[in-house]
């Protein structure tokens, strides 16, 4: 396991090279000993000041970014942390998510695909196997059972204008909802109104299930 500072560099490598499609990361912005540490672990390749990832490094940085974004998801969805301090707390929390804790949280949150800012969360082993030993706290509406109650945790629409439509109809995070039926369309109740949506939309509205 590398130091916390080195993990931050791994995260930067991921966002710079994998997500923003740059060819390298500039080493001069980081402390030389951190770069040396990564090199020693065989995670990066250095060419002058240009840092690139090795195959092993890419896997590690995917996991580092995954821990960070899972931490954000946990803080935002379960603890309702406000946007302004989210990143700060997530930076500290992520370093605790080792030894299977990341997978436990991922399962708990229903294997989320995106962080609260809409950036993708790389998949872990648990996502591939869909280990559902415990029922997640947050599930998409499409996985609720009839008569189950919950609160909208977040809405992640793949089409931008769909989010606008949901907002316009008053489907907002924080709303209490009850699922009425799943077929042939998803019908749910929120307040004194009933709505019907198709499966695609239902899989993009995420619900914090109420337990009795």
């Amino acid at each position: 396991m590398v130091s916390e500072a080195a993990q931050e560099v791994l995260e930067d490598l991921w966002t710079t090279i994998v997500e923003n499609k740059k060819t390298f990361l500039d080493a001069s912005n980081y402390a030389p000993e951190v770069i040396a540490e990564l090199k020693e672990h065989g995670l990066i390749a250095l060419k002058g000041k240009q840092v690139k990832m090795t195959g092993k490094g890419e896997k590690e940085s995917a996991m580092a970014i995954r821990r960070h974004r899972l931490a954000e998801r946990l803080l935002a969805d379960v603890f309702n942390t406000v946007d302004q301090v989210l990143d700060d707390h997530a930076c500290r929390l992520e370093h605790a998510l080792f030894d299977g804790l990341d997978e436990a949280i991922c399962t708990l949150l229903g294997h989320p695909h995106f962080c609260p800012h809409g950036k993708p969360i790389p998949e872990g082993k648990c996502c591939e196997k869909k280990l559902e030993t415990i029922r997640p706290i947050i599930v998409p509406l499409s996985e609720m059972r009839p008569n189950e109650q919950g609160q909208i945790a977040y809405v992640h629409m793949s089409q931008r204008d769909l989010l606008d439509k949901m907002l316009a109809m008053g489907i907002l995070p924080g709303n209490d909802i009850t699922l009425i039926q799943r077929s042939p369309s998803f019908v749910f109740k929120s307040g004194h109104s009933q709505f019907a949506v198709d499966e695609e939309i239902a899989s993009e509205i995420f619900i914090r299930i109420r337990r009795h």
Partner: peptide, 11 residues
């Protein structure tokens, strides 16, 4: 795009 379906059910 595939059409998406959402509707409010009036009483």
């Amino acid at each position: 795009v595939r059409p998406s379906f959402y509707i409010e059910l009036p009483p």
